[in-house]
């Protein structure tokens, strides 16, 4: 069991080492990176906005319920929604969702290329396949996912506003006062640190699962599932470690 995990870890490190080698032609890597940025960013925008909107709304409703009948002022709901989304919900939930959407897609794409001999064809041409197929995805994710997370945090706060103010549970002024209270810019730094670390985990783990896929469609399905499962586990583990270190 342990030797198997060490084998995978070693092979993952080797793939990443090869992926970070000097590109054969920077323009081709740039072109692939922009394509990936479009796929990851624009392709995930709608789902990220939808999920964030509801997460903000649900957080606000739940805290409103928790604070009902207590001495805690209700404007705290805005403060709690803001901080819980910035610190935890926006980076973690967004990246868990992206592991399912983007990660499984990357794993299937690279795995399909392996099975259809596209990777072999590139290898024979002399292309560093780990570099060309993995590095642009990682760079694109490192640029785009923090932006998605920032959008998610912003939309969540709006979601909380809509759930509270439109239903009359809280006044506009109270919610805005809560959102503007006790702001610590370190929390935003933590959000971006989490987003960057999670983005790296979900892309590199998913690419690894796809890059070494063997067999047929069943194995490709397994690789895609493993990409999501292992990315999610590692994201949650990293979430705990970052929270421990930065708080």
């Amino acid at each position: 069991m342990i030797s198997r995990q060490l084998y995978h870890f070693g092979r993952y490190l080797m793939m990443m080492g090869t992926a970070l080698a000097r590109p054969e032609r920077t323009y081709m890597y740039y072109k692939e990176t922009t394509r990936q940025m479009n796929d990851i960013g624009i392709g995930s925008l709608v789902i990220v906005i939808l999920i964030s909107l509801f997460i903000g709304a649900v957080t606000a409703v739940q805290f409103s319920y928790q604070l009902d009948g207590t001495l805690v002022p209700l404007y705290y709901i805005g403060y709690i929604v803001r901080d819980s989304t910035i610190i935890e919900l926006a980076p973690t939930i967004t990246c868990l969702v992206l592991a399912g959407k983007v990660g499984s897609n990357m794993s299937s794409e690279i795995g399909g290329m392996r099975q259809k001999e596209h990777i072999d064809a590139m290898e024979i041409m002399g292309v560093n396949t780990a570099g060309y197929l993995v590095l642009p995805k990682i760079i694109a994710a490192l640029v785009v996912i923090p932006l998605l997370v920032a959008i998610a945090a912003f939309v969540s706060v709006i979601g909380g506003y809509l759930a509270m103010v439109l239903t009359g549970s809280l006044s506009h002024n109270d919610y805005i006062m809560g959102v503007r209270s006790f702001f610590k810019d370190g929390n935003v730094t933590m959000m971006f640190v989490k987003a960057i670390v999670f983005a790296f985990i979900l892309t590199s783990v998913s690419c690894y699962q796809g890059y070494y896929v063997k067999g047929g469609s069943i194995e490709l399905g397994k690789a895609s599932t493993n990409a999501v499962v292992f990315s999610d586990i590692l994201i949650l583990l990293a979430d705990y470690l970052i929270a421990s270190i930065l708080t």
Binding site: K116, E117, H118, D120, A121, E123, I124, M125, G126, N128
Partner: peptide, 17 residues
């Protein structure tokens, strides 16, 4: 890789991207 620059290959399934 330098040798492979001198190599072309046609795959069974064509392997077109």
């Amino acid at each position: 890789r330098a040798i492979r620059m001198k190599v072309g290959m046609l795959f069974q399934g064509s392997a077109l991207f």
